[in-house]
Design a protein around this nucleic acid. Sequence first.
DNA 1: CGAGGCCTTGACCGCGGTCAATGCCCGTGG
DNA 2: CCACGGGCATTGACCGCGGTCAAGGCCTCG
Lengths: 189, 189
Amino acid sequence: MHSLLFNYFEAKTGINQESFEFLRDYFKPIESRRNEYLLRSGRICHNLYFVNEGCLRLYTTNMEGKEVTRYFAFKNKFGTALSSFINQQPSFEFIQSLEPTELLVIHRTDFYYLVDTNPHVNRIYRDMLEMAYTTSQERIYGLQGDSALERLRWLLEYQPNILTRLSSKVISSYLGVTPYTLSRLKAEL
Amino acid sequence: MHSLLFNYFEAKTGINQESFEFLRDYFKPIESRRNEYLLRSGRICHNLYFVNEGCLRLYTTNMEGKEVTRYFAFKNKFGTALSSFINQQPSFEFIQSLEPTELLVIHRTDFYYLVDTNPHVNRIYRDMLEMAYTTSQERIYGLQGDSALERLRWLLEYQPNILTRLSSKVISSYLGVTPYTLSRLKAEL
DNA sequence: CGAGGCCTTGACCGCGGTCAATGCCCGTGG
DNA sequence: CCACGGGCATTGACCGCGGTCAAGGCCTCG
């Protein structure tokens, strides 16, 4: 149940089994069904999720009701509505499981307690933030610099699993285009 | 010389004067001239800067040679080519001072040493990353969801100093439009 | 079998980019 | 002191990418 999480910690911090024992019980296993919501916009996000199996989607809707997807958390990834989790303000984001999903959950209070008291968790959080930041930078420069077709090619190159595994509707909201143009772009190879 | 930095630390971590004494000498004062480069794309970023006076600009150029500005660091802000600073890979970003600028510099090696050994600096870095992340999220959702005119209105509302203080050329690269369209947008009020 | 989603495709259009021309400001040198 | 040149801002004419809307086909699921 916690073995993927242990591997994750071990790879990033070199933690050993007995130190991990102390942490593991903070992370509770839960399951969610396809299309189930773990968080809705407007609510404050109190949980951090680690994906054992399945897939979470983090997205928001803008004023015109259009969906904008920010991140897919597959197996072996952490996911949460990070801005709300950090600032404890109502979330603009939704957290939705796109498939039947097995998760480990930790409550924000416990997590920040561990961040402040446990060097391994401190290191993990730092790593999460650094990664979240650098990937969002890539996205910004991609959105500003590249055409929709170039972004699709980039996705094909670096995250082909997204294209094969998820629906076009969801992919288009990730690429920042409408489903119509995504369909046309795919026709151009 | 270090008083702004002390205020910054004090506000975020409640550090006291004597604890700060130990840290301050890691931060060396330097100055830079208008349009001077502190880092050029292709080089690895080894420094973190704190702005005492003036303004830094962080930007990149895409394949067609077009500039995309990510951040302006005004007085009382930290600035660095964060992705390169974190990963020690060649930077895509340039760091340029837009005005005569007074800075405090700390070398990456020193900084991460302090992050790992000093709780105040650990907290400051966590805070930096959290802010860097949340602001880049706002940018992503703004770029994907809003029109150029809406983005300009947003800037007018939340960062009017940018509009008054910096050149249109630089502002347009921050908004993600050409100088031509920025000029037209301003004409529409 | 029917209803509703999702994907595709066509026709149309508007935002924002490109290119060229003009004017303004300012620094430099005759 | 003025003349010249270069950089920046503005504006007009044109165009193409990607959005919108409507229609049609194909799934799945009740």
